[in-house]
Structures are given as structure tokens and as C-alpha cells.
Design a protein around this nucleic acid. Structure first.
Lengths: 213, 213
DNA sequence: TAGCCAACCTAGCACTTGCTTGGTTAACGA
DNA sequence: TCGTTAACCAAGCAAGTGCTAGGTTGGCTA
């Protein structure tokens, strides 16, 4: 109410339009922006002001849509985990043999790079730190489910003779998991390197190795 | 000089001893502490007060040994890169064939987990963000050297017929690199899982794949 | 067309951050 | 034993942090 009230900013800096599209749409927009920033700069290094800037609003306005910065990453991660578990269970439900199921899991993991690149990166980079807090205990639970799905397939393959019986399912699971979840670090959506090529090469190495037979 | 001077903290909270061991020793100690925290909590999330607490001193005292928080991670990363490049060149210098050289590179990468676990984690987690700043341009340079070393070996293997000619050296390099550098995320030094077992399993999969021949 | 309310803005609070300045202590060499 | 100095402490600053409280606007509905 002081004399200097409107001298600094004119009315022109206001967000131009405010269409009514339902809050879910705007929330999803803001989450996508936040996810991209969390993925590219890191969760801690990304400020609520960064997110708001990118969205063309002020930081305080974010709190009309979200309780906290933490609830944003919560939403991003839980959505990603639900999707991933569903896609894994879809592969299992096809009822194929161990080798084809294993290949299906690798394939669907790498394919999710296209639509969930930022979420994978966030999961890969931040989940370890977040999992300690009670709010994010579902991360540990999901982690265990993932491990069971992969190791079960590997064990079945060893039993059926399709996989070599010298492999340690737990260790090989870690290798494969780290491999497929780390690819989004260098994969660029829309680039000339197509996901199908990555899938081909990765499947070739993981299933048959680099050596000529 | 006020009356309340020594009421809050007695003399007992002071660092107990101050032996003269040369600054290099104390610096290395503090760097080890910092590296552990950077690796376990992330660089941004780790405060200079965290590091000082762990060292049993006050945050300001850190600046007797280091210019800045940034110079600490700089020291950690450049040391790690020098070591790694040296170990890679050592493997190359043995003059073995492509397959054995490839195996040697995998082996030495995984072996470095024992002595450089925290440094690998920091490199893996933070280098991507730091590389943008001029001070850390050596990270990009090292990245290129690593890529050349690995892809050269893979290309030679394809040429000699030891590796399948369908493999894409650049993509397979990424797979292998991501695999060996991500292992420190779950590897626990001193645990029952010995590095030699990890090396065995990882070499088996990378060279020959999971499938029975 | 009056009123509601989603979606913003404005301003700033309480706290944490990396880092600085000046002072203190004790190990050590002369 | 005395001056030097490495290694710390004490106190706090400026810049940022997540978040809040209250005000404003305009699309929408009754």
C-alpha cells in the first residue's frame, strides 16, 4: 500500500490467459515441466522458482496445484512405478518361455525411455535418497517387486536350460537393471538413434554376449 | 567479551588434539569424509556443515584447507580420473588381444570399486551436472578418452573376428560403461559379496551372454 | 448480470546455504 | 623460552531456499 506499489512491475507481466481446462490437465503440464527439470538438474538443485519460471508463473502459484515440492516428485515417481509394474506384469501375462519373457522385460524397459525418460532418470538418481523417508517407502516395496520379477524369470531360464546354470540370478538382475535404467542418461528422444536399435544391440549382448560363438 | 561468553560451550567441545602431520595428510582425511558424504547424500544435498560435523570441526575451519566446497569435489574427481586413465592405459600396455584387453578393462573398472567406491559414485551422479562449468571441462575430455579406449578395443575385436561383427562399438561401450560404473551403487565394501564374484558374473554375461550356447 | 472460484500475483517470513573475518590455541624450531 | 604458524573456533553476512497469507482477475454458471 506504499507509494511505490506499482512502479516496478506493470500489468504486462501477468500470465496472458487462464483457460478453464480442469485442474488435472494443468497439473500434468506442471508435473511434466518439473520432471524435466528434476531429471536434468537434479531434484535438490531444482528450485520451485525454476519450475515456476519454466511454467511462466510465480513460485507461490505452484502451491495452488501442489502441497509441496516433495509431493511433485512423489507424484512423478509413483506414476512411473505403477506404469512400470503394469508393463512388466503384461509381459509376464503373455505366458511365454523364460528367454522370450526376459527379452520382453528388457524391451519394455527400454521402450519406456521414449515416454518416461525424465521419470526414469529421477527414479535412477533420486530414489536412493528418498527411500529413507516413510513417505517414499513404496519405492523400496517396488524395488523388491522388480527384483522378484526379474530373478524369477532368470531362475526359470536356468531350470529350463535356456540360460546357463552358472549365472547368479541376483547379480545378473542387477547388471541388467542397471543397464536398462541407465540408458536414459544419454538417450535423446527424437534423435537419430532409434530405441529399436538400442534394444537390438542390448538384447544381443545380454543374451549372447559380445564374443563370436 | 560479554558475560555470557563461555556459558554455552565449555572447553570440552574443542577438537581434542592438533598434531602436526603436514597438511596433505589432514586434507586427504577431510577429502575422504567429504567424498563419502557426497556419494551417500549427493553433492548439492551435502552441506559444508555436514562435512565439518563428520570431521569434528566447525564449518568455517574447512576453509583453512580448501578454497571452496567446489574445490573439494574437483580434487576428488580429478584424482579419480587420473587413476582410472592410468589403470586403463596399463591394461592396454599389456599388449594382449582384443578379448583379453576388453576383459582387463572390465576387471580393472570393477576392481576400483574397492578403493574408489565413493569417487565412482560421485563421478556417476554429479559429473553430468558439473561438466557444463569451465572448471570441470576435464570431465568431458576424460569422457572422450574413455570412449576412445573402449570403442577401439571393441572395433579391433570385431576386425579380428573375436567379437561378432553385428555389434555397434559405440552402443556396446555405453552398455558396458554404464554397467561397470553403476555397480558401486549397491556394492558394499567389506560385505560377503566379493568383487571377484561380481567380476566373474559380469564378464560371463558381457562376453558370452545369459543364454546357454 | 451477479456471484463464484480456479488460477494466478504480491510480498515477505523463517530458515539454510556457502563463505568470511578476526581471534585463539598449542606444536615446534631456534 | 619465545616467536612463528598450522589448525582450529566464534560469529555472522548476503544470497538464496521452500513455503505462506492475503489480494486480484476473469471465465463460467445460474
Amino acid at each position: 500500500m506504499a507509494a511505490t506499489k506499482k512502479t516496478v512491475r506493470g500489468g504486462s507481466s501477468r500470465a496472458p490467459a487462464r483457460p478453464r481446462r480442469g485442474e488435472a490437465v494443468r497439473q500434468a503440464e506442471l508435473l511434466a515441466i518439473a520432471a524435466e527439470l528434476f531429471a536434468d538438474r537434479g531434484y535438490v538443485a531444482t528450485t520451485v522458482r525454476d519450475i515456476a519460471d519454466e511454467a511462466g508463473i510465480l513460485s507461490g502459484s505452484l502451491y495452488h496445484h501442489f502441497d509441496s515440492k516433495e509431493s511433485m516428485i512423489d507424484e512423478i515417481l509413483s506414476t512411473f512405478i505403477d506404469q512400470t509394474l503394469a508393463s512388466y506384469e503384461g509381459v509376464i501375462a503373455e505366458g511365454k518361455g523364460p528367454k522370450e519373457t526376459f527379452e520382453g522385460l528388457v524391451r519394455t524397459s527400454l521402450e519406456s525411455m521414449v515416454g518416461s525418460r525424465s521419470a526414469i532418470l529421477i527414479y535412477q538418481n533420486e530414489a536412493r535418497f528418498l527411500a529413507a523417508e516413510p513417505r517414499f517407502s513404496y519405492l523400496t516395496a517396488a524395488h523388491r517387486k522388480f527384483e522378484k520379477i526379474w530373478t524369477d524369470v532368470l531362475k526359470k531360464g536356468v531350470k529350463s536350460g535356456e540360460f546357463r546354470d552358472s549365472i547368479d540370478p541376483k547379480l545378473v538382475y542387477r547388471l541388467v537393471r542397471d543397464t536398462v535404467w541407465t540408458a536414459p542418461r544419454w538417450y535423446r528422444p527424437g534423435g537419430s538413434l532409434k530405441p529399436e536399435r538400442i534394444i537390438d544391440q542390448y538384447l544381443a549382448v545380454l543374451v549372447d554376449g559380445v564374443a563370436a560363438h
